[in-house]
Amino acid sequence: MSTVEETVAPTGDRPVLELENCGKSYGNVHALRGVNINVRQGEVTCVLGDNGAGKSTLIKIISGLHEYTEGSMKVNGVVRQFNSPRVAQAMGIATVYQDLALAPLMAVWRNFFLGNEVRKGPFLDIPTMKRVAGEELTKMGIEIPDLDRPVGSLSGGQRQVIAIARAIYFGAKVIILDEPTAALGVKQSGVVLKYIVKARDAGLGVIFITHNPHHAYLVGNHFIILKLGRVALDAHRDELTLEQLTGEMAGGQELDELSHELAGADPGKVVEGHEVERGAVFDREPAAAPDHEERQ
């Protein structure tokens, strides 16, 4: 979408995207009810929620895969109902899905320009495409020495960044990131979080969908917790600590019950007959989450 429909420049504090009492029902199932979200440019809005809380439904409404059935959605102050992802994209709303929409066997630069190829006459302008892809990725702080490498050989974090950089380059004003850190190890998640900040600094409105309150709190300006299809919490960063966010996310009371249940289980205890071997592990760095994506 290199030719983005020129929409009214958002002035001051006016949100680019507003959802008012928005909801979606499938027959008698209310997947989502009464959601109010304001996404401003240069701000990270985090949407948290457990599995089945309605996060996916919310993304699908904003990205144009589903139409909402209640309330309203405004883009730059105008009520809109998207009936296809193309329409959403034309309005500057880009979605980076978990599967990233990258073709694994294709070169990095081919993927970057997929669907928006630069041409010189009838042929691809390969030098320009490689140069721009390299520049845009460098801007995001990621160096890929060989842009001819197939995307499938890169790490999960690098692939996320390519998808994000692509969305920004092709004129996104609002970018929705669907659980970008869910499948990543600690370091790779850090990489992606850095790029969320970069996207924010580039003036985009970021909607960061996650179920990890720690990741959300590192970058978020505004937090919304969904629970069973409703908004359970809607707070600005100033009104909230990480502990509160984690507690709310885990469902406060439920967490208490869980810790009560687990109180009897001594975490240091091992089954008799086994001895925990000591040594090697402690010489290294603290064990990080498994970096499985690096082997993909």
Binding site: P85, R86, M106, R110, L114, N116
Partner: peptide
């Protein structure tokens, strides 16, 4: 290798859902 259509061929063969998502 040198045309836009060629890029699309690789993409629809590699991952047609991804290709559709970016407007191929």
């Amino acid at each position: 290798l040198r045309s836009r259509y060629g890029n699309w061929i690789f993409a629809v063969g590699g991952d047609s859902a991804a290709a559709r998502a970016v407007g191929v």
